[in-house]
């Protein structure tokens, strides 16, 4: 076993364990921290496969931006962990039945069909080349994204204010 293979298996193990922990924790903040660990693991996997840009994006976007957003939301909503009840049989039975079908089909596909191996075309590129391509050929969509972010900002400000106003009015009405 080469050193790379060893690294791969260790990373894969960490990702599996961290994701498993993330979906079983009752405290939402703990699950998110485990999820971030899992994302870091996937990022390192990407790096191992020779895709440094994808690795960077995984960390910047998933582990960075989205998870921080999740944390913010959880902190703002202040959900009481004990109030989250465990899903009962009626809820998880259909879900696990459907999941089992998937697992069965996956096993069938892997074992029954030896011709399912197809070589995918390698698309290797340096982050710099990718960035130049994106920002040159696609700069109009990227400018549109900047407008979209502006609108999202305006909307978040307005809706946030509206919620605050609503809460204040409700408090006054209760008095």
């Amino acid at each position: 076993m080469t050193i790379y293979a060893a690294i791969f298996y260790v990373l894969a193990g960490v990702i599996l364990v961290a994701t498993g922990m993330a979906i079983t924790r009752r405290n939402l903040v703990h699950s998110i921290v485990y999820l971030i660990i899992s994302f870091f693991g996937s990022a390192m996997l990407y790096y191992l496969f020779g895709a440094p840009l994808l690795a960077a994006l995984e960390i910047i976007i998933y582990a960075g931006a989205i998870m921080v957003l999740f944390l913010f939301i959880i902190m703002m909503l202040r959900v009481d962990p004990s109030s989250l009840r465990r899903p009962d049989l009626k809820q998880w039975l259909p879900a696990s039945a459907l999941g089992l079908i998937y697992v069965a089909i996956a096993i069938l596909v892997v074992t029954q069909d030896p011709g399912s191996r197809t070589m995918l075309e390698m698309a290797l590129t340096k982050p710099r080349v990718f960035g130049e391509f994106l920002f040159q050929k696609y700069w109009l969509p990227i400018e549109i994204v900047s407008f979209l972010l502006l609108i999202a900002l305006v909307g978040a400000l307005y809706l946030g204010k509206a919620f605050a106003r609503d809460a204040r009015e409700r408090e006054e009405a209760e008095k």
Binding site: Y138, L140, P141, I144, V145, F147, L148, I151, G155, L159
Partner: peptide
């Protein structure tokens, strides 16, 4: 891609 972004921008304005 441009079509998609433009469509999203117009939709988000309406959502607000």
């Amino acid at each position: 891609l441009t079509i998609y972004m433009a469509l999203e921008l117009s939709s988000y304005c309406l959502y607000l």
